[in-house]
Design a protein around this nucleic acid. Structure first.
Lengths: 342, 342
DNA sequence: TTGTATGCGTTATCAA
DNA sequence: TTGATAACGCATACAA
């Protein structure tokens, strides 16, 4: 049977004082005599007394818990986000409660309600791919729970958001290739309907433009599925078509790997014959042979920024200051190839 | 300013009834008239009333929260464990609170205390690599919090544990190679002082033994560091030494990739010339070219088993039944190579 | 310097 | 069928 927890009342009884004195002694209240404090602290130590956060939270209407809802967790990006959030939460003395919506909008709704029931002091959320109904999220926002969306955000909600800079990342990747001397850069582009695909394409074109390289439409090859086989096939296709190119900037990390595999099979050397850069988030870039340059969507930084933004809001609210939602754009990082650049 | 939350008292006031009636109506208590129930439910719906779990927890001395402490989260294995735990927790109507000890024993202690302060109904923990002092963990166990350790467990604690079957996994990997016709199987072995290395080596030897293949000591090559370069160098070394072999079973996934890279550089075909199997946990096995067979330490299953074991214990305790700690061993899975086996 | 009383939101016991 | 009250563990306004 689970032992009853020790409470302040227990300490008070043993010492023959009142529980409010114990309460004050434990938090080093100036009114309490050193003598009493010492006695209380000593006994608390002996009994291994641990305060009950639940009672505290109820009392203060503040749980010191942050909620985070992610679509999946077995994914470096989201794992990194959580890691970033945790690091900020720790500093602030907060705990983190996690829900995984599993890409299910229904689960997501349940999660949002659970977060409110747990009275989290703030909520971080990245939406499911299929989330349409924002009612439950809107509802928790209406209830005044500070909320920050990240990565997969909903434009229509008036909350702070943290997103990656897709344009800038693509720009960096492309310019990185240009700086290596590449002039005919293939872009494996993503689905046209996705905002991120468009932004990455724009970044690619902007970099070319800045460096006075004309955009060649035939170098922009769609890779909508973004899987390994597609990347491989598409790359073999352009190799066989005789298209002249000296680099590939892939919209997607998996497409990039597919492309690398195709290049190697066709006897091309990387990066001597063709340089490849991918856009994505995966620590295994360095396990590939040769290692792949990549534009990393820094999940950690996103988590960091999102959590900081959330705390700004939480603190503003505590002080009853108005807080205007804003959107932070997190810079991407170019993970340099381990081998030398040509 | 954060709006005040609605409480049962608010519903009661508006309806001119008492809060206890509201409480009963909301949980469909048989004593309450249908009329009242309908009125209460309707108003609760309108006000978007959400019960306060904190008050509930305090009242019931039960938080419906599971705590999980992992050394890191940006790691497929632990991410999978969390995923497995979540799936069980959801079914039981529990939430999950996560702490990341970041491989720091100090942080771990803080986390354990935080978990107790939050009055989690159960704790899952995988230790830091350097954890020596188990006092805080012992303390929370003494307080009667159901606890299950997984993967990195401490022998000396009398709690349930869930671990992977290293012997069986290595046995499977080796027999998989034998079944493909391999007879001279190199084993890239891990650090001698680690229990898992020994178990994997024993599994390798047992499989050979069962299949009447003599153990050749020269085929057992140490790869203590387990990094990419080591795997590559060691493999090149054995290739240059003229050692005759037709397969590699690597103790570690990264060593396996290093080995593959070396083989490819030396013009060996995989799996035609040499078959490779790794021991580890990484979804990218299928992104490699060729995809690598691997013995997967199923983090998800570990999480599943650990959580189930934990709930068994929680429920036994609620019913005041005594519960004896036990250790579950989770079977590994062999992820088959996508290409055909020879 | 310390004690008493009250409330946080909920449920359960006992009356009505 | 409903209401009043106490209790969960803690902090604080007010008394002493």
């Amino acid at each position: 049977m689970r032992k009853a927890q020790y409470t302040m009342q227990d300490i008070a009884n043993q010492l023959g004082i009142s529980k409010s004195t114990v309460s004050r002694a434990l938090k080093n209240h100036p009114d309490i005599s050193q003598e009493t404090k010492d006695a209380v602290n000593k006994l608390a130590e002996e009994m291994d007394y641990q305060p009950n956060s639940l009672a505290l939270s109820l009392r203060h209407k503040k749980s010191f818990v942050l909620g985070i809802i992610v679509p999946e967790i077995v994914h470096d990006f989201f794992a990194n986000v959580i890691s970033g959030v945790q690091s900020v939460a720790y500093e602030e003395g907060y705990n983190v409660m996690i829900c995984i919506s599993n890409e299910s909008p229904e689960q997501e709704k349940v999660d949002v309600k659970a977060m409110y029931s747990s009275r989290v002091d703030g909520l971080l959320i990245s939406l499911t791919k299929e989330t349409k109904d924002l009612a439950s999220l809107q509802s928790i926002i209406n209830k005044g729970v500070p909320t920050v969306m990240f990565d997969r955000v909903a434009e229509e909600l008036e909350v702070s958001k943290v997103i990656t800079d897709d344009f800038q990342g693509a720009f960096m990747a492309t310019e990185h290739l240009i700086n290596q001397g590449c002039k005919k850069i293939v872009h494996l582009s993503g689905p046209n309907n996705l905002a991120i695909s468009k932004l990455r394409l724009k970044g690619y074109m902007a970099a070319l433009d800045k460096n006075n390289i004309a955009v060649d439409e035939s170098l922009i090859v769609p890779c909508p599925k973004g899987d390994l086989d597609e990347g491989k096939e598409v790359t073999k296709g352009i190799l066989n078509s005789g298209l002249d190119f000296d680099a590939i900037f892939a919209n997607n990390d998996v497409s990039a790997i597919g492309a690398m595999n195709a290049l190697k099979e066709e006897g091309k050397k990387i990066p001597e014959d063709v340089s490849v850069v991918g856009f994505g988030d995966w620590r295994l870039s360095q396990l590939l042979d040769p290692p792949l340059s990549s534009i990393e969507q820094s999940g950690f930084d996103i988590g960091l920024q999102a959590a900081k933004l959330l705390f700004e809001q939480i603190k503003a609210e505590e002080k009853d200051i108005e807080f205007s939602p804003r959107t932070e754009v997190v810079q991407n990082n170019l993970i340099k190839r381990a081998s030398s650049l040509h």
